[in-house]
Amino acid sequence: MMLLRSNTAHESAPHCVGVLGLGLIGRAVVESLQKRGYVPVRSQKLTWDSPPRLREELREVGDPTLGDSACEFIWCAGRAGFAATDAETSRELGTFETVLEWAESIAAKSVERQVGFSMMSSAGGLYEGQQRVDEQSPCRPCRPYGRLKLHQERRLRESPKLSQRRIFRPSSVYGWLRSDQRKGLIPTLIHNGLRNQETSFDGSFNTLRDYVWVGDVAEIVVRSLFPKHDDTPTNSTRFIASGQPSSIFQIKQLVEATIGRRLQLKFVSQASNALDTTFSANCVRDNGPLTDMSVAIRRIAADFSSNGVSLELRRPHITIKRECLT
């Protein structure tokens, strides 16, 4: 968990933000907050896979907000992936509930205190196999992971003590490849392509997904902490998707064109993950313009290049400013 604080934040914005989980999205959220003047003030290692131990650790942490009038917790944690079992997801639900109870206990300390909670759900998990998903589409999770997200959302909505309950449903998020994180499709393709290694797919050439750049996800989440109007709804649910479906074939073409090498692909014949999941462009219009996939792929490839992997890009490098985490 990372706690950030800002003394210059807008009146309606929280002065203290706790980011729970520093994986792909969590780190990007922290970076985005830092760009808006938030300074990391505390980093706390938590035991995510054991709710009793986590409860103990959070009790030791106490009230990290130091009496701030407005604070926000952003849940970006979660080890369970698409292939998670019921046992794994129920453990993760326990972890989530422990953290939520902790946030509720902080909110309960004072009536005047505004404690908000944002959670990263999963549009892919909730709407797996559905096409042109919009606000009217019913959630139909096909696997434990999707059901976990649905339970987490319900649990958050039913939390009366929190002043703001924001749910974000990102589609397939991709971003930097770091050794300590789950590898997404696109970074894996670049990574293996540069090393002439084969990449296995649980899907097919034509499987359609909606990919969204992690920087955009973080930007949308952080932007929501700065409401333009005072009448912000207490409960809000928002899709974070591009509204543009992409097939594996299309991504393969983009990656090959960027790294200048042919990719070696292997498709698993008994694909359990081959259902198309796409989102209506009309329901994500409020997200504003998102990073084009070809640009993002070049960013990732450039990152590989700067990390010592030999790579000749066809076009000039795009320099990314990334501030160091403290």
Binding site: S137, P138, C139, R140, L150
Partner: peptide
């Protein structure tokens, strides 16, 4: 948003 209803 609509919530999960497997009968639908």
């Amino acid at each position: 948003m609509n919530l999960y209803d497997p009968r639908q």
